[in-house]
Design a protein around this nucleic acid. Structure first.
Lengths: 231, 231
DNA sequence: CGTTTGCATTTTGTATACATGAATTGTATT
DNA sequence: AATACAATTCATGTATACAAAATGCAAACG
């Protein structure tokens, strides 16, 4: 139960650095490694059963991704998430999600339209299970289709990275059942706008979607900060 | 006690990986290292007078930044710039530059307004020198002020990264004197919109600005691709 | 009693060594 | 001459070794 949450048993054919990178990233995003926590190389190396080299290389990538901060001659620690940094991320994401919606309108293929319709239905079904993991997966799947429909690889990469930053809050945010109806409705509007090739409506709906996420997440952050002060 | 003495030492002893990272990035962006060129660790290590370790760590960061691509068991090479990848970058940049303009309208301080006015004048002066380097510097300075005025650190980071990707084309693009009047005019419109707190106008002007850059850069790319075939 | 100094431990930063896989070259055979 | 195959070379992937810097603690000093 527990402490061996960090396991590298995923892909045996990827370079160790990538396995370590994915493992650490997941651990940070799920909150298993908490903000401010130090990432000590030897410790991680022992725990993951590899040498320091892949650990270091993974940390370099996490550093550039903004998930860890480097302190010279002291090493890496999990980046602190402040209300400010989340607001910054969401502000950018609002613009990029709107862009995604617009581009999806212009470029979505018939196949993708079918996938999108399916994903929407799946999401509505998922909310009925009340299983947070299932709902989160369905939500991600739906967004992934829209983002992919833009056909812009760089945009896909950036939006995914930004979405990641809020990953740990996503669960809490989805847990709130009172929001499910609203979520379904927001998805429906985005879906219909894309189907109707109405860029403006799709972009607007995407922005509103993010706005609501922001409200929900900010409420949580303030709760958390009220409970325990940062060191 | 000598606090500034410590600070000097800190500045002087930048980790080698960062020195290497900056060196390689600059070499790639200026075209000194050409797309498709292999980055061999031992070779680079000898050339820069360091061991493979800092080289590897620098490459990991360049990889995440999209400036090099990794081929398993073969190593890193400078990322190919295709028309497609530049179109993707510009599409995102158009949205983010528009966002920058909007946010700058809302948040710019009086000090920054003065700086912006100055930077605009400086740019116009710079075009008169016909010195590409001077013009490019003035152009960057102007944009930096607008981006900084958004007060959004993540946005600053992302926009700078995207701008980097087109760095090597920037010179060619600025070299074309017939475009200078247009450039000055575009800057003026953006500047005046921000001064007037007119978000919509500023965003629109920023988009047009990128559109024109895109046209200019794409013309170059096609010329280049016509001259020499990609490997 | 508080401050400082010095030592030990810890941890990063860098270099190097070893192994595996890929590519190339050379040779032999058809 | 061309092709297939083997051997060698070379580069990456990984591990480990070594040095410098920082932290923590304790003892000595004011």
């Amino acid at each position: 139960m527990g402490k061996d949450g960090l396991q590298v048993t995923m892909d045996e054919f990827l370079p160790l650095r990538d396995v370590v990178f994915n493992t650490l990233r997941k651990a940070i995003l799920t909150g298993e490694l908490k903000p401010g926590e130090r990432l000590m190389e030897i410790h991680l190396a022992n725990r993951l059963g590899v040498s320091r080299t892949p650990i270091r290389e993974a940390i370099r990538k996490l550093e550039l991704e903004g998930l860890v901060t480097m302190i010279p001659r002291r090493g890496a620690e999990v980046a602190q998430i402040t209300e400010r940094s989340l607001k910054d991320v969401l502000e950018v994401r609002r613009a990029l999600d709107a862009l995604c919606a617009e581009l999806a309108c212009e470029r979505i293929t018939e196949t993708e339209k079918a996938e999108l319709a399916n994903a929407c239905a799946e999401f509505e079904k998922a909310t009925k299970t009340k299983d947070t993991t299932v709902i989160a997966k369905a939500d991600v799947a739906l967004h992934d289709i829209i983002v992919a429909a833009t056909g812009n690889r760089r945009l896909v990469q950036l939006v995914n990275n930004l979405a990641e930053q809020m990953y740990r809050y996503r669960f809490e945010y989805i847990k709130d059942e009172s929001q499910h109806e609203r979520l379904i409705e927001e998805h429906r509007i985005i879906y219909e706008s894309i189907m109707a090739n109405d860029s403006a409506a799709a972009a607007k709906a995407a922005r509103i979607h993010i706005d609501n996420q922001e409200k929900s997440i900010m409420k949580q952050i303030r709760l958390e900060n009220g409970q325990r002060q940062p060191v």
